[in-house]
Each structure stands twice: as structure tokens, then as C-alpha cells.
């Protein structure tokens, strides 16, 4: 999944920054502190903005390159915030063999941004997820938590239209 870099403006607050810095100061001397710090940052901001990664690099002395390498290595980290409307397409084994790859492509084409990213206006974000446990309905798409089963690419525009108004 291309975890492309943030395209929407950073909206972090001084309070969020202070909270992150406080956490880093508490934990940075412990071995293996990087993962918990990144998890905390994601908890605070909802994703890992560049600005937060720079703060982590500066405060810990770990090169930014390494922070970014870890952030892009693990699927649990998001480099983009979630959109007002969050679309997820399951790429778990069952959904995938039933054609969810084509469904995802149709979503990408309809919305106009890549999986793992967000539209510049912040309205829509697309995720390709692992199994969400609804294999009986494969292929599955969720929009803001609403589950749509037995999807075909042709169904995508009709469903998304209601979220575009």
C-alpha cells in the first residue's frame, strides 16, 4: 500500500506538541522507545504528520530518516490524517480473491486519491485494510463504519454518491 506523504495542511496545536514532548522525555532513555513514541504521536495527532516526526527526531536524537523508515514500514502507522469520510476496502485473502482489488481501484478512480492518502480538501481518505472479519460478505467495503458487502466495481459510484453531497 503506498503510504504517500501528507498532502493536507498540518493542524497541530501547542498542547499536542507539549503532550508529545512530555511523553518523549519520560521514555526516551529506555531501550526500544521509538515504537511507543510513534504510537503515542499517532494517538495524539491521529496520524504521523511530518511535523511530529521532526519533533520526535529532534527530541530523541534518532535520525529523521530512521523515524520515517519505521513509520512507513509498519502498516499500523498512518502518514495521512483520516478524511471526514473514511473509505476502507478489505484486501484480506477472502475479499482479495473475490475481486476487492478491482473495487479498490474503482474507489481510487472515483475519489481521485491513492489508497493510504487523503484528498487535499480533507473530505475523503481511502485505506486498504487487512481482514475485517466479514469474509462471508466478501468483497467488503466500509464507509465511516457502514459495511457494504458483496461489492462489485459497478456498485462503487452509486454508494459513494450519497457521501459526496
Amino acid at each position: 500500500m503506498p503510504n504517500t506523504k501528507t498532502k493536507v495542511a498540518f493542524k497541530g496545536t501547542p498542547e499536542q506538541e507539549a503532550e508529545l514532548k512530555k511523553f518523549i522525555a519520560e521514555i526516551k532513555h529506555e531501550k526500544g522507545a521509538t515504537m511507543p513514541i510513534l504510537q503515542k504521536a499517532q494517538e495524539i495527532y491521529g496520524y504521523l504528520p511530518e511535523e511530529a516526526q521532526v519533533i520526535i527526531a529532534e527530541e530523541t536524537g534518532i535520525p529523521l530518516t530512521e523515524i520515517y523508515g519505521i513509520a512507513t514500514f509498519y502498516a499500523q502507522f498512518a502518514l495521512n490524517p483520516k478524511g471526514e469520510t473514511q473509505i476502507s476496502v478489505c484486501l484480506g485473502t477472502a475479499c482479495y480473491v473475490k475481486g476487492s482489488g478491482d473495487v479498490l481501484q474503482k474507489v481510487v478512480d472515483t475519489i481521485g486519491c491513492e489508497a493510504g492518502s487523503i484528498t487535499p480538501d480533507g473530505k475523503f481518505s481511502i485505506d486498504a485494510t487487512r481482514c475485517i472479519g466479514a469474509c462471508g460478505l466478501a468483497p467488503v467495503m466500509t464507509v465511516n463504519g457502514e459495511v457494504y458487502g458483496r461489492m462489485t466495481p459497478a456498485m462503487v459510484p452509486e454508494i459513494l454518491k450519497q457521501y459526496m453531497e
Binding site: 503506498p2 503510504n3 504517500t4 506523504k5 511530518e50 516526526q53 535520525p63 529523521l64 530518516t65 530512521e66 523515524i67 520515517y68 523508515g69 512507513t72 514500514f73
Partner: peptide, 19 residues
Amino acid sequence: AVIGASERGFATHIGSPFD
């Protein structure tokens, strides 16, 4: 340390922070 590896599997590539 401005060169590193990002992503994983086939997508692994050498680059700089935030590509």
C-alpha cells in the same frame, strides 16, 4: 543520516525522509 530505507517488501526503496 539523510539516506534510509522506507516501506517494506517490494515497495522498499532507498530515499530520504518523507521521500
